[in-house]
Amino acid sequence: MSSSLGRIGAIARTTFIELARLRVFYVLILFALVLIISSSFIARISFQQELQVTRDIALGAINFFLSMLAIVATAQLLPRDLEDRVIYSVLAKPVRRFEYMMGKFFGVLGLLTISLIAMSVLCLAVIHLREGSAVRETMQQMTQSPPEELERALTGLHQAGVNQDLAFALLLTLMKAAVLASATLCISSFATSNIFTISAMAMVYLVGHLETIARDYWLHQHSAGWLIRAFLALVLLFFPDLQAFNLSDQIIAGASLSSLALTKLLGLGAVYIVGYLVIAIAIFTQREL
């Protein structure tokens, strides 16, 4: 057991180093940075709205960056190992194929976690600074206002600033990226090129974001028969409901996420990850190299 973990750890570590040295990683960071910094040039409507829009842009950028990184980075892992023939020397060692796949997944997960931490620190710093300056300016402008009004304005600012909901949103962004990484690994376990994997994942990404809208439309606007229900259930089974992990809209709207809802979403993500990994391992174990 411990030696199995050791092998998974060795593959995960090497995968992390491999991905961390990819140029695409730095390009995407740059892209995310540009998006975050662009939030500094928002037309000011009110302090609270400015903070909300900043959070929206920052969360959106992190969400998009992590999702793309999860797909692009994972898609090239198996083809690259096959091309460089690394896979032969690795699997000729006493390494089980599930250890190889788990190592690859945890390597990607490590990269996504580190990326999220780096992005979050930057995002939280930007929001915290803007919140601080908004609080100061509000207090200066409302010196003549009644205390209740000032209190209400400050509460609104704190709700739009750094708080627990923002942390939950970031955690769910990581879970969504992990689901995408496991789905990508699943597709690349039988794909013959990373172009195919990325194209297929683009479809998964699209369907995953639109299926909630489609489901609501079919189930509530029409009298859905068993065939439609079965089709929707099938779509939900294979395509993760990615929109469920996007909390930025709810947070902008000021809605708070309960711990139970968070746990449910994390559980849903875990189920998808385990499911995709089980399929990926089953296919890869049978694959002739």
């Binding site: 040295r21 023939r85 690394v86 032969y88 000729a92 060692k93 006493p94």
Partner: peptide, 21 residues
């Protein structure tokens, strides 16, 4: 069986290994 591979060392043809290591 995986245990058999403890006894085997393999050098693949034209292997490049992990170039970044």
């Amino acid at each position: 069986t995986v245990a058999v591979r403890r006894d085997i060392g393999f050098l693949p043809e034209n292997a490049y290994f992990h170039k970044f290591l």
